[in-house]
């Protein structure tokens, strides 16, 4: 069961929900098959709330073309087939812009003289931690690397190989609605969209919903900082027949606990109540799953 926690708007509580939900589920259901994965590889921060024991660490690589001038006839085929202008013919040279390369192999495979072999480039680190009986995976993009998608994709492959299919995978996703979010959510069984009840929250929620509709994904909404703003998010969800599974209250104490890097639900009973609702929703879905 794969649950992606996502949002259109940043800072609405994806990590807060992911971390609290993971620990809550493992405690409440006495299960040791919870896997929390921080897929916000540009700035992973789930780990700030968890004191884990490092189990393993590995470098992750992506493949990019490297020009070998020896046999190159400067035919320019490589730049023609590159959709991202990552390969350019400049006079008597072929220049490769690593940051623009999406690793599709087209220039390399279609080069008539084999002058653009693909080579490894390190893009980040994947770390595996044990936090109580939770498995926590964090991937972090190296400084200077611009593309999150290959690392997200490899991280998902890693967890799928490493853990039982029966596990509950919680993907703490990146914010927004662009490629990294799509990579993190496209294979999830359910996407939980967390938002806040403000005009900004609604605006970005609509974008996220549009994206999920396009992906034909199932999703439900959690409202964070309920009771601030207005009722436009609730109205919208009602109109569109979108289920709101929980409402996390707005409480200064939550912010204080968060700022200390502690878990909210252990100190705020209302948070625990809301997590119960989400847990119930997840297990009902898991048990009702037809595969």
């Amino acid at each position: 069961m794969k649950i992606a926690i996502a949002s259109g708007k940043g800072g609405t509580g994806k990590t807060t929900l992911s971390v609290n939900l993971a620990v809550f589920l493992s405690e409440t259901y006495k299960t040791n098959n919870i896997v929390l994965i921080d897929l916000d590889v540009e700035e992973p921060n789930s780990g700030l709330f968890l004191n884990g024991k490092l189990i393993s660490s590995e470098s992750k690589y992506r493949m990019i073309p490297k020009w070998n001038p020896e046999k190159c006839t400067l035919c320019g085929n490589c730049q023609k087939v590159c959709n991202f202008h990552a390969v350019l013919k400049l006079g008597k040279k072929i220049a490769v812009f690593n940051e623009l390369c999406h690793g599709c192999y087209a220039c390399s495979e279609l080069c008539p003289t084999g002058s653009l072999p693909m080579v490894k480039e390190k893009m980040g680190e994947l770390k595996q931690f044990e936090v109580g009986n939770i498995n926590f995976i964090e991937s972090r993009l190296d400084i200077g690397q611009e593309q999150a998608v290959p690392l997200i994709s490899q991280t998902i492959d890693f967890v799928e190989n490493q853990f039982d299919d029966d596990s509950i995978f919680i993907y703490d996703s990146p914010p927004g609605t662009s490629c990294p979010v799509i990579e993190a959510t496209k294979d999830a069984d359910i996407v939980i969209l967390i938002t806040e009840p403000t005009p900004f929250g609604l605006h970005d929620l609509k974008l996220a919903i549009e994206t999920m509709d396009e992906l034909k994904q199932e999703y439900a909404v959690v409202i964070n900082r309920a009771n601030i703003g207005d009722d436009s998010v609730e109205k919208y969800c009602k109109e569109r027949n979108i289920q709101i599974i929980a409402k996390i209250p707005n409480d200064r104490k939550i912010a204080e606990i968060y700022s200390k890097g502690e878990l909210i639900y252990k100190q705020i009973p209302e948070m625990k109540e809301e997590l119960k609702k989400i847990g119930k929703y997840i297990f009902e879905m898991k048990n009702g799953e037809k595969r």
Binding site: F84, H85, L88, K89, L90, A95, L100
Partner: peptide, 15 residues
Amino acid sequence: DVAHGAGPQTAQKLF
């Protein structure tokens, strides 16, 4: 119409 790499493409034209 180009989403990515507009800079290098224009630069190449200039080249």
